[in-house]
Design a binder for these strands. Structure first.
Length: 206
DNA sequence: CGGCTGATGATCT
DNA sequence: GATCATCAGCCGG
């Protein structure tokens, strides 16, 4: 019989059928779900508290101008990782969100640290819990996500996967997306109200 | 805490 | 050559 330490939480893998088959529903439904990464040095995990939807036909979506070497993972069936480099320094973790051939995804912008906190602190070089994975670049760093994870199936048997835990999800708020210039007025950001682990200016997360 | 700035390099035109 | 789905650090209130 498996024993769970007091501080550890049971996380069950999400199957593809657990993911809503459209981008907006997926972005909303990922709030409260969990990202787990099993590394050689240990497992890290975080509870998703903030996402953004990037739709098919959306000028802000990287897939807007069609497939390229960078964005090809956005065109995979929903539930695959799309990882890319932003501003030359930060990696962004997304989940592809539509049928194969349709380019769209959900950016995971922030997680509440769950397991492997010491390892995440090491990855980030900071110890303040609130700052470990608040913001998409920090999140990828904390979870040890690299370009090697681009295109992996998050619903498969791999080391990087999505899960759920038995815990209440607070009310989900919405706002415009952060840090973009195209289609900047569309309300496609989702966050858990009241979570201190959400990124962005406070006025966007009342 | 909010606002601003410079660093930084991959990606595509 | 332009454009970034960002971050850390610094400054003022």
């Amino acid at each position: 019989m498996t024993r769970w330490s007091e501080l550890e939480v049971r996380v069950r893998r999400l199957r593809r059928r657990d993911l809503p088959p459209d981008t907006v529903s997926l972005a909303r439904s990922l709030i409260g779900k969990v990202v787990v990464h099993q590394l050689a040095t240990g497992a890290v995990s975080g509870r998703i508290v903030e996402t953004e939807a990037y739709l098919a036909g959306d000028p802000a979506c990287h897939a807007f101008r069609g497939p390229t070497p960078r964005n090809r993972a956005l065109f995979l069936e929903r539930g695959h990782a799309y990882v890319y480099v932003a501003y030359g320094t930060s990696l962004m973790l997304n989940v592809s969100s539509e049928a194969r051939g349709v380019g769209a995804g959900v950016l995971i912008r922030a997680v509440e640290p769950l397991g492997g906190v010491a390892l995440m602190e090491r990855h980030r070089g900071v110890t303040r819990l609130r700052d470990l994975a608040r913001g998409p670049g920090r999140l990828a760093s904390a979870l040890g996500v690299t370009l090697a994870e681009d295109g992996v199936d998050l619903c498969g048997p791999g080391a990087l996967w999505l899960g759920r835990i038995d815990r209440r999800v607070g009310p989900v708020g919405t706002s415009v997306r952060i840090g973009i210039t195209k289609a900047a007025d569309r309300v496609l950001r989702f966050y858990e109200r009241g979570s201190p682990f959400v990124s962005g200016p406070r006025r966007l997360s009342p």
